Amino acid sequence: MDALKSAGRALIRSPSLAKQSWGGGGRHRKLPENWTDTRETLLEGMLFSLKYLGMTLVEQPKGEELSAAAIKRIVATAKASGKKLQKVTLKVSPRGIILTDNLTNQLIENVSIYRISYCTADKMHDKVFAYIAQSQHNQSLECHAFLCTKRKMAQAVTLTVAQAFKVAFEFWQVSKEEKEKRDKASQEGGDVLGARQDCTPPLKSLVATGNLLDLEETAKAPLSTVSANTTNMDEVPRPQALSGSSVVWELDDGLDEAFSRLAQSRTNPQVLDTGLTAQDMHYAQCLSPVDWDKPDSSGTEQDDLFSF
């Protein structure tokens, strides 16, 4: 819950932080000083300027060897085509990944977070970031790969997607708890209302004896509580940590079903599988986004697919 609360507080303090972009060759504004600060901008989305290598189908939802083989196929196909790589912007948030063309600003792909089953910074092609997700059109699994400016960037994108998945799962947990509370309150309110109706004398007997209905007592009954809980029953509950912020979080049926399955089948359902080692994760978390744009010590960066 700490990640969720800190993310909400950060967004309320400075929503404009989320509009910064990394990996864009110096076009961005001043960047936060450390990885923790940038992680807090996830709610509205972190932007990464990358190059799209392509996509291939895979048979399993996750796995280092599986993704490595898929990336190898994608890279080989991209090299064989001889075409310049498409420059894209990857927007990562707890909602998922939005992929747009840098030149036309046209939407290429919009992947809900619950469809993503794996992401990684490839070991062999260490400047490549990739994720595996279920197609929104059918049940097939797709591996999408992107060329980053350097290994640090690939690791940073991988960690960002993993963190977005974690925050999304926490949102789901909060929403589920809130819905259970509202359902319980609604049920209790309905029981109270039913009890009051059972003990209320029939209207005919009131008229016969000349008694008047006590409207004041009726007004004191917990009807307002019942209506408050039943009027918006169809509205999706939102985490309290975000009250007053500009973010509107809505959970669709697909996300609810997917996270429910994860909660039942996995020990740590909030953790998205990645190909990063503990050492890689520690190294990337210690980086400032400013470091992502620094040239690798191995030599001059080449803006070309064939540089790796």
Rank of each mutant, 00 (worst) to 15 (best):
T230A: 04
T100K: 11
T41F: 08
Y52T: 07
I108N: 01
E44W: 05
L17W: 13
G299K: 11
L213H: 09
A208M: 07
K181V: 07
L141Y: 13
P239Q: 10
D37W: 09
Q173V: 14
C143D: 00
K79L: 02
K5G: 11
V161T: 12
A263L: 11
S6T: 15
G24S: 11
E44I: 14
K294I: 10
G63E: 07
K176M: 10
L305K: 08
K176D: 02
Q302S: 06
H144P: 00
A195M: 05
N110P: 03
T120H: 04
M281S: 13
P222I: 12
Y131D: 01
G54D: 00
L90T: 01
A69W: 13
E250G: 08
L11Y: 06
V290G: 04
G26Y: 10
C286R: 07
N232K: 07
M233A: 05
K184G: 10
S297T: 11
L193W: 04
K123N: 09
I98A: 01
Q264M: 13
K79S: 01
K181I: 11
N232G: 14
T104M: 09
P295F: 07
K150W: 11
G24E: 08
R266I: 03
I12F: 15
S260T: 04
Q86E: 05
D126I: 00
S14C: 02
N138S: 12
H137E: 13
Q163S: 12
S140A: 10
E65Y: 10
D280K: 07
A156C: 11
D37M: 13
R73C: 13
L66G: 04
G194A: 13
I74S: 00
A241G: 12
T104L: 05
L272H: 06
Q139H: 12
V271H: 10
R151D: 00
F165K: 02
N105K: 02
M124H: 05
F165Y: 07
P289G: 07
S81L: 07
Q173I: 11
T277K: 03
E44C: 06
E64D: 13
E178Y: 08
P269V: 02
L99I: 11
H125S: 00
L242D: 03
K184Y: 06
V248Y: 04
L31Q: 09
N138H: 15
G26D: 12
T41D: 14
Q197A: 06
E216G: 03
L223A: 15
T209E: 13
S186Y: 01
V192L: 02
P289V: 01
N211H: 06
S243G: 12
M281R: 11
S224D: 07
T38A: 12
Y114I: 08
V75W: 00
Q136H: 10
I97C: 12
P61N: 14
A208C: 07
Q302R: 08
D304S: 12
S49V: 12
I71R: 00
Q155G: 03
S298W: 11
A80D: 11
A7E: 14
I113T: 03
A241I: 09
P237K: 09
Q240G: 04
L50D: 01
V192I: 13
S112M: 01
M281L: 09
F259T: 02
S16H: 05
M124Q: 00
S246L: 12
A162P: 01
A121G: 15
I113H: 03
A121N: 05
V248Q: 12
N229K: 09
K179A: 14
A18V: 06
A3T: 11
M46Q: 05
S186G: 04
D253Y: 04
A154H: 01
P237M: 08
I132T: 01
A168N: 03
D252H: 06
S243M: 05
D101W: 06
F259V: 02
E180H: 07
A10D: 15
Q136R: 10
D296N: 11
E301P: 08
S49P: 09
Y52I: 07
L47T: 11
E235Q: 14
V167W: 13
A133E: 08
L213V: 12
F169H: 02
G96R: 12
P94L: 03
A3R: 12
P295W: 08
L251D: 06
V128N: 01
S49Q: 09
S227K: 06
L305G: 08
G25K: 07
V248P: 11
D126A: 00
N105R: 07
S288R: 09
V247L: 09
Q136E: 14
A76C: 01
E33K: 08
S186N: 03
G299M: 02
L215C: 05
K123C: 01
G24V: 13
G82D: 02
R238I: 09
L287A: 05
P61G: 05
G24L: 08
H137Q: 15
K184N: 14
T41K: 06
C199H: 08
N34L: 06
